[in-house]
Nucleic acid binder design. Structure first.
Lengths: 132, 132
DNA sequence: TCTATTGTAAACCATATGGTTAAATAACTT
DNA sequence: AAGTTATTTAACCATATGGTTTACAATAGA
């Protein structure tokens, strides 16, 4: 099905738009860096930043829509945790260009070896949360 | 100098903001994909897109500011060519997170081997568990 | 020189983004 | 029940973004 392939590309573009736009803000990258060290509550996440908690809350929602974080609500506390999957999609997009700095194809192969089963992508189920 | 390090980080953030924002648009990614196959004039770059040449020209300027393309002006013709360097910066930023999907450090080392001379900090930390 | 081609600049528009404050909701504590 | 804490929603604001059309500048070709 050609149509499927085309729609697939559009979906990819939608995903990449969402992910890259989420990453294209230093506050959100900083939030992500903090969350990569472990889950945290929103109040704690907001504390180091020189902006209102509401602003941070909005940033987190952008990250959440891009699936870069997951939210676990316990009572009134929202626990956020880092999710790596979207970064793999960025990585996969970069694969198209990596040849430009690796120069040689066999250096590229190093990388492909890790991706070869997920590139056709039936099930990308990688979980990086260290929470439980 | 500590101040130098801090400024350095801010500069990185500026660069990443610029680069990731440039990449966070499907038209610009498509332009980049086309240019990765070889240099092209602006008119030819614009032709496949369903928007004015002016719009494409603006997109190209965004890519140029991020140094993702270079422009070679010959007479009235602007020849654009792909520049990979900023993508390496994205790659380097991703290094901090690659451990989340490689899991093991030696898979990561494959990657670092290529970066060791171009990066100021060749050791990304590996913290996957809940911290404080 | 006149005209067509290549591209930018300017002015404009609608919507998105990143921030604010104030109010609302929900869940713990006392 | 009353108050405090955690977070979102709503309303608002300034600026950025992605697009348009029209006008301009510069080069190339007749």
């Amino acid at each position: 099905m050609l149509a499927r392939a085309l729609i697939g590309e559009e979906v990819d573009d939608d995903r990449l738009d969402l992910i890259l736009r989420a990453l294209a803000d230093r506050t959100r990258r900083a939030l992500l860096a903090r969350l990569a060290e472990g889950p945290a509550r929103i109040t704690d996440l907001a504390e180091p930043f020189d902006m209102s908690l509401v602003a941070v809350s909005k940033h987190l929602k952008v990250l959440e829509r891009a699936e870069l974080i997951e939210r676990d609500i316990e009572g009134r506390v929202h626990q956020c945790s880092f999710q790596a999957a979207p970064l793999r999609e960025v990585e996969r997009w970069l694969d198209h260009y990596r040849v430009f700095w690796h120069g040689t194809l066999d250096a590229l192969a190093n990388h492909v070896e890790d991706e070869h089963d997920s590139s056709t992508e039936p099930k990308p189920e990688e979980n990086a949360d260290g929470g439980e």
